[in-house]
């Protein structure tokens, strides 16, 4: 019995087994340790910002603009309002084009332009944000100067491929039978899409839009040469505008303690908003 079961290994069993068991254990420990190393930066960053930034997050932080360099006090009201405005404008572009693009890819698969749109949408997804900033600079800033609108266009360009991708995926999850049921009742295709397919997929599309917003809300690179930044509150989209990531960038690279303090508080606010959005979007998509 034993003589027949060992030839494969050719060596006595117990010794081999110990070596294998040891290697198995070692790799398990190594893998667990690696996971700790992977997750550690997130926790370190979060608690660092909590420690350094929470103290600066007072009423003044939300209601004032940055103090002149070298003075103390001030807040990031200009950046918060600027971010909100630019994200709202970017959404118009990103959601309008993105959802339409998703509908086009999912509902008109035999259209001759479909492969081109799909390929270019994937290509756009891979283009670095800073390059989109250069593009928006050439398109808008060269003619009209720095403006919140130019920043919003750059952010909108970045949102488009993300929204296209999720919209297409979610629309494809809606069963064909649902579309056929609508068509068999005599509804034209556009009404089937607008009144039946889109409402069924609305939750998923909203999730995709939220993820896209969370992604571009933290982008400073495309805003450097478009929105440019503004130390004052600005509600005019044709004028230079500030944004949270821009203030974080300027503050973190500034020599003044006060600017650095504001940058840390701004970074805390930004990642809190982004984390909340991401978690909400994830929860919503899981419930479907």
């Amino acid at each position: 019995m034993t003589a027949q079961s060992t030839p494969l290994s050719g060596r006595p069993r117990p010794r081999l087994s110990a070596a294998r068991r040891l290697r198995n254990l070692l790799m398990g420990v190594l893998i667990a340790l690696s996971t700790v190393v992977v997750v550690a930066p997130l926790l370190l960053i979060f608690f660092y910002l909590l420690r350094e930034g929470l103290g600066a997050m007072n009423l003044e932080f939300f209601t004032r603009t940055p103090a002149p360099e070298g003075e103390t006090g001030g807040g990031l009201l200009n950046a918060i309002l600027g971010s909100l405005q630019m994200l709202a404008m970017a959404s118009v572009l990103g959601v309008g084009v993105g959802v339409a693009g998703g509908i086009f890819l999912a509902e008109y698969p035999r259209h001759p332009l479909m492969p081109t749109v799909r390929m270019l949408s994937d290509v756009l997804a891979g283009i670095p944000a800073i390059v989109m900033g250069l593009v928006a600079y050439g398109l808008i800033v060269l003619q009209f100067g720095f403006s919140g609108l130019a920043g919003a266009v750059a952010l909108g360009f970045l949102m488009i491929p993300i929204v296209v991708r999720t919209t297409e995926e979610v629309l494809k999850l809606v069963p064909v039978t649902v579309r056929e049921a609508g068509l068999s009742l005599g509804l034209p295709q556009w009404l089937v899409i607008l009144r039946i397919v889109l409402p069924a997929a609305a939750g998923g599309i909203i999730t995709g839009v939220m993820l896209a917003l969370a992604r571009v809300a933290g982008e400073a690179a495309p805003l450097l040469f478009t929105a440019f930044g503004n130390p004052l509150v600005n509600l005019d989209p044709t004028k230079p505008m500030s944004a949270l990531p821009l203030e974080i960038y300027r503050g973190a690279t500034s020599a003044y303690d006060e600017n650095q303090r504001l940058a840390k508080a701004g970074a805390l606010l930004l990642i809190l908003i982004i984390f909340a959005t991401s978690l909400l979007a994830r929860r919503a998509s899981r419930r479907r």
Partner: peptide, 10 residues
Amino acid sequence: AVPSVVYGLW
């Protein structure tokens, strides 16, 4: 999801 600037700051 952590933005590039926040990594840079840290």
